[in-house]
Every structure is written in structure tokens, then in C-alpha cells.
Amino acid sequence: MKEKSARNIIITPATNSRKPRRGNKPGKRNRYAIFFLAPYIAGVLVFWILPILFTFAISFTKWDGFNAMQFIGIENYKHLFLEDGRFFKSLFNTVVIMGLSIPVTLVLALIFAYILSGKALYAKRFLQLGVFLPYIMTPVAVGIIFALLFDQHYGFVNRILMYLHIIQSPLPWLGNEWLARITLAIALIWMYCGYQMILLMSGMSMISEDVYDAARIDGANTRQVFFRITLPLLKGVLVFVVITSLIGGFQLFDEPLLLFNSSLSGKFPIGGPDNAALTMSLFFYNESYTNFNFGYGAAISYMMFVVIALISFVSMKIMDRGDRL
């Protein structure tokens, strides 16, 4: 028995080294692969690659979607950079809103993650769920709810604040430039805190208990353990969270749109009072689909791409350098 199988094993490689037979698997397998991949590749090409190239092309034209395109060279970009204050305003708004919301979200998420991953905490699961639930709400609902809550005259927030005598007269949360940004930031913090908390908790769970034991023995108190051990070991997760928040922040669209433009919010320009909450995405959307300036919109979208790419690149460099220290 043994000798027979040994013979078989010796023979087979020799077969492979000869010319492939017709029914040989590797050749046919390649052909089939193309069929299976074709639909997906076609999809990627048509819905992804081509639009990207097309957008770039129309950014040099004036086009309203109905009539023919007119080639106008870099006029769109000129108007965007030099004449239209809204580009820098939207950039500023986006940055400000991210600056208001991202750090607070992160700190809150850290606090929650720390508290809620401790051991015997009563109703821990319930609290975790509560903090996470806002993340799965649709932005439409969130926008509408916040518009109602922060309404100047009938909103719950003003009523509570006045009842507690923190303010004397109702604040125009949605009517004032900076208050509008703060309201939007609060909505964003509320929505995303839970998600970041979950990520941080999973990061924390990867730190082995032994390290904490060693730290206790070495004499670290709770604060020292948190800042000198937990936090540095969470670095990977933190970097991820910050970068994805930055990228997501630049694409902010749903929440400001629905906070200021739902049927419940009263009349505002698309970006809220004085366009204070006009994010870059909203700006793009308004120009393209409301004003039918597709060429201009295309130019805006390419500038957005440049900005996002730059910021991602820079922030990754900064985070990496920290690593090497």
C-alpha cells in the first residue's frame, strides 16, 4: 500500500510540468473569473470612476443640467476662490463646528467608556445602550427634534434654562450665528458620543488586566493609571477616531440641513442664520441641485476633495510623529 501511494506522488508533478491539458483547471478558472468580476467592475466604473472624471470635466464648464454645457475654463474656480465669500465661510463653518464638537465628543466618550467599562456597575448595559442609541437615529429625526427642543419661544431647552434661572430671556438658539453653531455641535456630540464610546471601550478591553495589576503594585493611583497607562495604550483607537471624525466632519450635511430646513424649523437660508451652519457639503448641494449650477458645484466638490485629502494627510503625519517619540 505504502509503495503505491509513493509512486502516485512522484508521478503527479511530472504531469503538471507538461503542456496543460484542455481540461486543466488554471486556464479555465481565469476565464470564469472575468465573468464573475465583470458586473462589479462595471458598477465601480460607471458609478464611481466615471462620475469622478465627469465631475472634474464639468467643473470647467457652466451647465444648468438642461441646456448644453459651456466651456468657461477656470472661471468657476476663480469665482470660488476670489469672489465668493461662501467658500471660505463654509470652510470656516465646517472647521468651527468640528472644533466645537469633536474634542467634546471625544472627551465625553472617554469618560463614558472609562466609567462604563469598570466592573460591577449597576445597570451598566442599560447605560451603554442609552449612550449609544442616538447614533442609530436618522439625522432627519435628530434635526427635527433638535429644532423643536431649541426653538426660541416654545423649545424645552429655553424653558428649563429660564426655570432654573440660568437665563433671563429665551435665547435664540437657532437664530443667532454662534448659538446656531453651538446647537448644531450639541446635536453632533449627542449623536456620535456613543459610537466613539464603543470604539474606545473595545480598545480598552484589549489592554490586559495584568498591566493594571503591575501599575497598582508600582504605586500608580487611579488618575496616574488613566493618563500614563490607559490613554497611551488607546493611542491607536484615538487616532482612528480623530481621523474618521475629521473626514466625517468635512462631509457634514444631514444634520445642518435638517436642523435649519425642516418643516419645523421656520425659514432660514439653507445654512441657517447668516449661513452660519453652511458646511461645505451643504454649499455644494445648494449650488448644484437648488441653483442648478452644476459646473460651479463640481468645482466646489473638487475643492472639498483637496481640503479633505490635505487635512487627512497632515493629521496622519502628526499622529505618526507622536508615535515615534
Partner: peptide, 20 residues
Amino acid sequence: VPPKNRDIAMVFQNYALYPH
């Protein structure tokens, strides 16, 4: 008495070194 005041030192099975 908390560990740090007991004048002891411990070596763990998994070493428990601070990775960072």
C-alpha cells in the same frame, strides 16, 4: 494596606510590561 505601601514587588506570568 494598598499594594504600593506593602513594600513588595511582583513578577507576572505574562510579564505585564507596559507596552508603550
